[in-house]
């Protein structure tokens, strides 16, 4: 067992873990933070996407011990549940308003990947959004409303006045 200290959504956590423990299982099973999902075993689907030290990563392909000393941010840290809808992150609001989710299973990973995308490129084109989300699979939406949601959130995060997004 190895001791890890990981700051998750602003809270410091400390546990003795097996070195083989995957970061996503540390989040879900050790911490009970089940907002982050697992959708595959080959690093393809992106459902488990979180931010580690500010970069989007697939938490199924990182060992918890590799994240020792790191800061991890998940979808659960984007908004304070106590504040309700008023506290939502622009991406959360945009996914809701543009119907960027159906079953919602890919959504936490999709939102965290989109957050990274917008941080790297605050004004992405439709093609840049589509290419930037190539590592996240959704089986419900056909992606069109996800693209719309990311464009809409990016506009809000840039501080643009509300624009009608047509993709």
């Amino acid at each position: 067992m190895t001791k890890v200290e990981i700051t998750v959504d602003g809270t410091s956590t400390e546990h003795e873990v097996e070195p083989r423990l995957l970061l996503v299982h540390y989040l879900r099973d050790v911490l009970g933070r089940t907002g982050t999902n697992v959708g595959c075993d080959t690093s393809n689907c992106g459902a488990c996407t979180i931010h580690m030290d500010g970069q989007s990563v697939k938490s199924c392909t990182v060992l918890a011990v590799q994240a020792d000393g790191s800061t991890v941010d998940t979808v659960e840290g984007l908004a304070d549940p106590v504040e309700g809808e008023a506290g939502w992150h622009p991406l959360q609001r945009a996914f809701h308003e543009e119907h960027g989710l159906q079953c919602g299973y890919c959504t936490p990973g999709m939102i965290m990947a989109s957050k990274g995308l917008i941080e790297d490129n605050p004004n992405p084109s439709e093609k840049e959004i589509r290419d930037g989300l190539e590592g996240n699979l959704c089986r419900c939406t056909g992606y069109q409303n996800i693209v719309k949601a990311v464009q809409s959130a990016a506009a809000e995060m840039r501080g643009d006045t509300k624009v009608e997004v047509e993709v």
């Binding site: 982050t36 939502w88 996914f95 919602g104 939102i111």
Partner: peptide, 13 residues
């Protein structure tokens, strides 16, 4: 949507 976009979900796993 509210619980799905905030990670307050109730998946079987």
């Amino acid at each position: 949507d509210a619980h799905l976009i905030t990670g307050q979900t109730n998946w079987t796993d």
